[in-house]
C-alpha cells in the first residue's frame, strides 16, 4: 500500500487514482492461501454423462461448486455439476498403458469375427443333412 515517501500512481482509471497506490514494491506476498484442487465434471443436460472439464482451487466442496459454476458454466447449457477433490482420484500410470492393449487373441470379443452365414450356406447346399452323414 501507499507509503509517504513513494509517489502515488496517477491512473486513467479514477478508481485506481483514488486508491493512492504506490509502485516499486517488490516484496514477497505473504499469507497467500494454497487451496486444494477439485476436479470438475459438467453435465450439459439431464440424462447426459458428466464430463470432466477441468479443475478449480477451493477450500471446500461448496466453494468448489461455486467456482466451477463461474468457470465452466458461463456459456454452455448446464444441468448439473459434480466436484471431487483431486487427491481422491486414483489413476493408472501412463507408463503401464500396455495393460490396455487389445491383443489379437481377444477377437472373440469382436462381433464381426462371428461368421455363421458361410456355414449356414454350406448346410443348405448339401440338403440340410448332418455333417457326418453328408
Amino acid at each position: 500500500m501507499a507509503t509517504e515517501d513513494q509517489t502515488t500512481i496517477e491512473s486513467l482509471d479514477p478508481r485506481i487514482s483514488r486508491a493512492h497506490l504506490s509502485g516499486g514494491n517488490h516484496e514477497d506476498m505473504t499469507g497467500l492461501l494454497h487451496f486444494q484442487t477439485y476436479e470438475v465434471f459438467h453435465q450439459n443436460k439431464r440424462g447426459a454423462q458428466h464430463k470432466h472439464v477441468g479443475i478449480v482451487h477451493a477450500p471446500n466442496s461448496d466453494m468448489a461448486l461455486l467456482y466451477a459454476k463461474e468457470q465452466f458454466a458461463r456459456r454452455e447449457q448446464t444441468a448439473n455439476i459434480w466436484v471431487a477433490p483431486s487427491s481422491c482420484i486414483a489413476a493408472t500410470e501412463y507408463a503401464d498403458d500396455d495393460i490396455f492393449t487389445t491383443t489379437p487373441e481377444k477377437l472373440y470379443r469382436n462381433p464381426a469375427t462371428y461368421k455363421v452365414m458361410d456355414r449356414i450356406q454350406a448346410f443348405k447346399e448339401r440338403g440340410m443333412t448332418p455333417s457326418d452323414e453328408a
Binding site: 509502485g23 506476498m29 487451496f35 471446500n60
Partner: peptide
Amino acid sequence: CNAERLAVRRMAEENGKWVARAINNE
C-alpha cells in the same frame, strides 16, 4: 503502466485476503 499494473494486482491480493481467510474458515 508497468508500476500501475503490478500495484493494482498487489492491491487486489491484499484487499482480497480477508475473503480467502473467510471462505477457508472451517
